[in-house]
Design a protein around this nucleic acid. Structure first.
Lengths: 131, 131
DNA sequence: CTCCGTGCAAATACTTTGCAAAGCG
DNA sequence: CGCTTTGCAAAGTATTTGCACGGAG
């Protein structure tokens, strides 16, 4: 196992669990998912490793949804849709990127800041929820 | 004072405090700001009233920044810039709207959802912070 | 031996809530 | 009087952290 390569068995499992789903899970969800397989897993470990993975740039946060932070292992720049009723998080496929380096530069100058990234989220009601 | 019109004195003060600044304050900031003038103000009241104001559509959340929710009384659709070092929140002026009804409709169809709003946030380092 | 990773429980941090008292029309 | 608002403190929820132990090189 690639130890000394930033991956412990549990960190690997946490990353895999996240990468294996499209639901953009919360810490709790990952914990519940792995607990049966790894009985001695603790919630703190999931929190800690998600933060490590984030620092390593392997994972990013979708933001806090209904009180819990949600994560994504898809590091490509893409918007999300969040259902305000059931709090489902869905990837929004985009042909082109809405914002490129030029846009960043333009707005950076405009505001006197240095933009490094952005987050685009749409809100509404998904098709599983009653209108 | 327009009582029975959804405004108690404290709610009014909370709204005014929020509307009087561009820093997109947190609950705590509003509380500290008003406390000297209104000594018997309690933190719970600020929380409660911001939620009421939000439901009334007079206020919206910028999101959770560094652990605290930040608010904005400017209900116009506009992006924000958040400094990842000092957590300053700045309005981003935009000539046109990035997303109009057509875009909403297009993406809604694409994802099988009904988009009602969106949130666009840029991240980076502001000009007050060291590179 | 030395680190890194971990369980566990305690500690934080922010926000919400129950309740009785107070305010307003 | 009836409904809204509030202070206060307690409760709730999510997340972080201290510490000592355990495993890998």
């Amino acid at each position: 196992m690639q130890q000394r390569r930033n991956f412990s068995a549990k960190r690997e499992a946490i990353y895999s669990a996240l990468a294996s789903t499209k639901i953009h899970p919360s810490v709790e969800w990952i914990y519940q998912k792995l607990k049966p397989t790894i009985p001695d897993l603790s919630l703190g470990t999931v929190y800690r490793n998600l933060n490590v993975l984030r620092e390593m740039g392997l994972v990013k946060s979708v933001g806090v949804v209904d009180g819990q932070e949600r994560f994504d292992s898809d590091m490509s720049q893409h918007p999300h849709f969040i259902c305000t009723k059931c709090f489902r998080v869905i990837d929004v496929p985009v042909g082109r990127n809405f914002f490129d380096a030029n846009t960043y530069g333009y707005i950076s100058d405009e505001c006197g800041v240095k933009i490094q990234s952005h987050n685009l989220t749409f809100y509404g009601v998904c098709n599983n929820c009653p209108k």
